[in-house]
Every structure is written in C-alpha cells, then in structure tokens.
C-alpha cells in the first residue's frame, strides 16, 4: 500500500504562486478559481517579525470529512495512494463537503460539480510529479509515498522539524510543512 503525501519546505518557498498557475494550466482550472494557493502567516510586531509562507491545497486526509459526508459517494478515496478525489458525474453539488473541509480546499466548478486538487493523479500514474511540484522554481515541494520509509518525503520528515495544518481538526492531513 502506498500513501501519497507532500512535504513542503517553508524555508525555500518564496510564495511566487508558480504552483498555482501550473495547476491552472495543467488541469484547466476555470478563471477565478484555484485548486492550490499561497498563505502567508506573519507573527510578531515591527521590527521583530517572522513569517511562514506555505503553498496549500487539499491535504488528502487520512480521515477525510469530505468523503464521510458525501451522500452519493462522489467524494472518495482513490485506491492508489489514498488520494481524495471527486467523480464529477456522481456529484450533485450539495456542498456538504465544502462545509466539511477545514482547509477550504474545495470549490464548486462553474459547471456545478465540486472540484479540488487531485495530486495530479493523472500525472502520477504516468510516473510524473504533480504539476505544482514539477514547476516549483525553489524546489520547495516534495511528493512521494509516506508509507515508504526510504522515500524522500519520509526521510525529510524523519530528519527535519515539521508541522501539518490543523491536526486538531482530526482529519489526519498528508501534507507536511518543514519549519
């Protein structure tokens, strides 16, 4: 079994949003929408400040509330790597999953179905990296199998301090941020 995840080095990330454009072109995300985005968190007061810049997206949680609440099974966990996907032909657009996601990672596509990050599973299945990872000029993003202790992502997690987003929400997110 594999468990896909991402490890993102916040030291390297400059928040340029190349990941966002790459996702938009790769996946034909409609204008005015995005599947991934940048968050900047600044702490402190002038002039003693620190800032974390993160590229964020669906966390492909191990305990995905969006999947649990879906009335039709459109939101589901893919057999490969535990990736959370939406089958658009099964989605009725009830928006329960939007409300269930603490990361606000989902949106309603203008055509009516719910859309979100797929970890570019269509690329991963061809042996490619997700589009956002493959374009990042700072090489801050790493994608791989969290269940494989020898994978780059596992080794990074083993060797460096990291955190995930809102672990207290109980969703068991699979994207980690190196700090």
């Amino acid at each position: 079994m594999s468990r896909y995840g991402m490890v993102i080095d916040t030291h390297r990330c400059v928040g340029c949003m190349d990941c966002v454009v790459a996702c938009k072109t790769e996946n034909h995300v409609p204008e005015g929408y995005c599947r991934d985005w940048i968050t900047e968190v600044t702490r402190g007061e002038f002039p003693t400040l620190r800032m974390e810049i993160r590229t964020e997206r669906c966390n492909h949680c191990d305990n995905p509330p969006c999947v649990h609440c879906c009335p039709t099974g459109a939101s589901h966990v893919h057999e490969r790597g535990g990736v959370v996907l939406v089958t658009k032909e099964e989605c009725i657009g009830c928006k329960a999953c939007l409300a269930a996601c603490p990361y606000d990672a989902r949106f309603v596509h203008p055509e009516g179905y719910v859309d979100k990050c797929t970890f570019c599973i269509h690329r991963v299945e061809q042996g490619l990296l997700p589009a956002c990872v493959s374009v990042c000029p700072t090489h801050c993003m790493h994608f791989g199998d969290l269940d494989d202790p020898l994978s780059e992502v596992s080794r990074l997690l083993a060797s460096r301090a990291h955190h995930a987003l809102l672990p207290e929400a109980g969703t068991k997110p699979c994207i980690y941020y190196l700090t």
């Binding site: 400059v14 400040l49 800032m51």
Partner: peptide, 28 residues
C-alpha cells in the same frame, strides 16, 4: 536568481536584508 537564492537558503547561507519592508527575502 530566485532558484539560487532558495538553494542558498536551503544550504544554510546567512541572509542579511536591508529593506524598509519585511520582504519575502527578509523572512528568510
């Protein structure tokens, strides 16, 4: 330059930023 900047930051180079604004670079 940005690619090399991230490489330098990743390699632990010391960065000193002089800027009236706490730029992205300043945060590194």
């Amino acid at each position: 330059q940005v690619q090399e900047f991230s490489d330098a930051v990743g390699a632990g180079a010391t960065v000193i930023v002089v800027d009236p604004r706490f730029s992205v670079a300043a945060s590194k």
